[in-house]
Design a binder for these strands. Structure first.
Lengths: 191, 191, 191, 191
DNA sequence: GATGAATGAGGGTTCATTCAT
DNA sequence: TATGAATGAACCCTCATTCAT
C-alpha cells in the first residue's frame, strides 16, 4: 500500500524511528492501527523499507546523467532536480537526515555501495580540474557541499518560508533558489 | 545540573523529543531516572531549555563580530567558528535540525527575534553588493546557503568520516574543511 | 477434516487451550488460518471436539476386555496397550493431562460417566481380592496408580529418552517398559 | 515478592507459558499489571525463575536422604514427602509437568545435572539388587515409575477427589494414599 | 466452497511522572 | 535533598474471528 509508505516517511521524518508511533502512521494513512499492522510486519521493517525506497528515489533522480556533459550542464541539472524534489517532498530528505543523525545504523551497508559512486564522481571532478574546467577543489568536499546546499531547503523549509515571508499557501520560487545555489557553485568553481 | 543538559542534547539529537527517553537521558548523565525527575519539571521543559541553551551558544559564538569588517574577514571567521563547533559538538547542530524538521513548533517565537537579525545581515550583504565587494546575490539565500554548508558537517559527521576514510579514532582535518568551504563561498561571491 | 484434529491435539498438548493459537494449528495442518476457521466454529469448540475424540480413542482401546479374564491377562493387556499408545501418540495423553491440570472444566460431565466405569472396575478388583487372586488393595487408588504409570511415559517422553540415552532417531524399547511396569504391578499385587 | 512467584506458578500450572497472562498473574497476586511489571523483567524470565524455584523445592525436599538407609526406609520417606507435597502444592508439580509436556525447552540444562543424580540413584538401586534386598529391576524405569506414582496425585487432584467422593472442603487422606503407593512399590520390589 | 482483507479485543511491555519516605 | 516504589497511559503487536468476494 503506497499511502502507508508515504505516511510512514512523513511520520519518521518528523519524529524519527523511536518517536514515530504506528498509531500516528495509521492516522496519517487514514486507516486503523490494526489495519496498518495487517500490511506491515513491524515498525522497524517499515522504516527499513521506507529508507530503501528513498535511496531508490534518488538513484532514479540521477540515473540519466550523461558522463560527457560539461560541468555546468551537469551541475545545473543535478542541483535543479535535487532542489525541486526537496521542495516538493521535503519529508524524504528529512527522514534520510534523521537516520543519518541517529548514526545511520541502518545505512552502513548502503554507504559501502555509495562510496564507490562517490569515488567515481570524485574522479570525474578531478578530470574537470585537470582539464582546467574548474578550479582545483577537494572533490569529496565539493560533493558534500553540494549535497548540503540542496538538502538544506528540504530540512529548513518552514524557516525559509518564514524568513522570506512566503506564507504556506503560496508556492516558493524554486527556480530562484536553484538559480542562486547554482550561481554560488558555478562562481565558486570558476578557474 | 550541567551534565543533564549535555546528556539531554545528545539524546534529543539522536532521537528527537518524542523518541528520547528520560531513562536514556538519565543514563547518559550517570544518574537515576528518579533523580533526573527531581531536577527537571518535565521532558518537554528540558527540551525547551536545551533548545534555548543552543540558541545562546550560537549567539555567543558570533557576538564579537565587528560591523565594519570586510566580507572576507567576516565570512572566514564566521565559517571557521561554525564548522569548528559543528565538528566538536555535532549534537548541538543535530538537536537544532531535529527541531526544525519537526516543523519547529517550539521555535516560532525565536524566529521572530531571529528574523530581525537576518534582515540586518541582509542589509549588510546588500551594502557589500552596493560597494562592489561581492557580486549581486539574494542576501537571504546567501545566509541560508552558508548555514547549510556549515551545519552539514555536524549532521553528516559519520558519513563524512566514512567517505574520507577517517576512522573514529583520528581527528578530522577541520582546517581543510574550513578552507574548502570558505574558498567556495569566496569564489562564489567574487564580483 | 481429520488432519485438523490431529494438528489441534498436538498444539493443545503443547500449549493448552489458552496458549494454543489457531495460527499454529493451521500451520500444523498445512492450511491457512482462514481455511481453518471455515471448518471449525471456534477454538473452544475444536478443543472440546478433540477432547471427546481422545476419550473415544481410549474407550475403543479397551472395549474388547473380557470380564472373565484373570487379573494377570487383563492387566498385562491393559498396560501394554496403554503404554504402546502413549509412546506412539504422546500428544493424546498430554492434551488430556493438560485439561486435567487446568481443573478439567470441560470434563466434569465426562467424569460423571467415567465414575460409573471406575466403580464397576473397583468391584471387579474387589472380587479379585475376595477370590484371593491379589492382595487387598484400595481399588480406586490401584486404578489411579496404573493410570499414573502408563500415562507417565507419554508426558515425559523426551526426559525418558534423555535419561536412557536414546536419541530421537532410535525407537524406545516399548516392550521393555511394558515388562517393567507390568512386573511392578504384578509383584505389587501378589497376595 | 514472594506472592508474585506463587501467583505465577499457579497461573503457569493452569495455562502454561504461552497461555498464562501477566494480567491474570497480577490479579492472582492482588496487584496491578503495571506493578507486576515493576517487579519482573518479563513473563519469560518470571517463568524461568519459577521453574528454578521449583527445582530448588524438590532438591530441598530430599537433601537429607541418608545413603546407608535400607530400601524400605528410604522409599517410604521419599514417597511420603513427595506425595504430601503434591497434595499440598499441586500447582508446583503441575507447572513442572506443563514444562515437560512442552518439550521442556527451558530444562535441558537441568537435565544435564539431573542425569548425574539419576545415575547415582541407579547405582544404589543396583546395589540393593546385588545385596538381594529387592528383586532385579531396571533402575532407571523404577525411578520413573515412582516419580509417576507420586506426581500423579498432584496432576489429577480434582479427578481423584471426584472419584473418591471427597468434596473440596474436606481434606484428602494423604496417609492412606501414601500407604497404598508405598505398599505397591514395596510388594512390587520384593525379591 | 474457499480465500485475502479486515477488525476489536487484548497481549506483554515501556513510558513519563508521582508518591512516600 | 534524595530515592525505591508505584501508576495510568500509551506503546507495538498478535489474537480469534468476521467480512466481502
Amino acid at each position: 500500500m503506497e499511502k502507508i509508505r508515504q505516511a510512514a516517511i512523513e511520520e519518521f521524518a518528523e519524529n524519527g524511528l523511536r518517536g514515530a508511533s504506528t498509531q500516528a502512521i495509521a492516522r496519517r494513512a487514514g486507516i486503523s492501527k490494526t489495519k496498518l499492522h495487517y500490511y506491515i510486519a513491524s515498525k522497524e521493517e517499515l522504516y527499513q523499507e521506507a529508507l530503501t525506497h528513498i535511496i531508490g528515489i534518488w538513484a532514479e533522480l540521477f540515473n540519466d546523467v550523461v558522463d560527457d556533459e560539461d560541468p555546468q550542464s551537469f551541475l545545473r541539472r543535478y542541483i535543479a532536480r535535487k532542489i525541486r524534489h526537496s521542495l516538493e517532498h521535503p519529508e524524504v530528505a528529512r527522514m534520510f537526515t534523521n537516520e543519518v543523525m541517529r548514526g545511520a545504523p541502518m545505512m552502513r551497508e548502503y554507504w559501502d555501495t555509495s562510496r564507490h559512486a562517490t569515488q567515481k564522481a570524485s574522479e570525474r571532478i578531478e578530470s574537470w580540474v585537470a582539464d582546467g574546467l574548474i578550479r582545483p577543489v577537494d572533490p569529496f568536499l565539493l560533493q558534500f557541499n553540494i549535497w548540503a546546499l540542496t538538502q538544506h531547503y528540504a530540512l529548513h523549509l518552514p524557516e525559509v518560508r518564514f524568513m522570506l515571508g512566503v506564507d504556506e499557501g503560496q508556492p516558493l520560487d524554486a527556480e530562484h533558489i536553484i538559480d542562486e545555489v547554482t550561481a554560488l557553485v558555478f562562481h565558486g568553481l570558476r578557474p
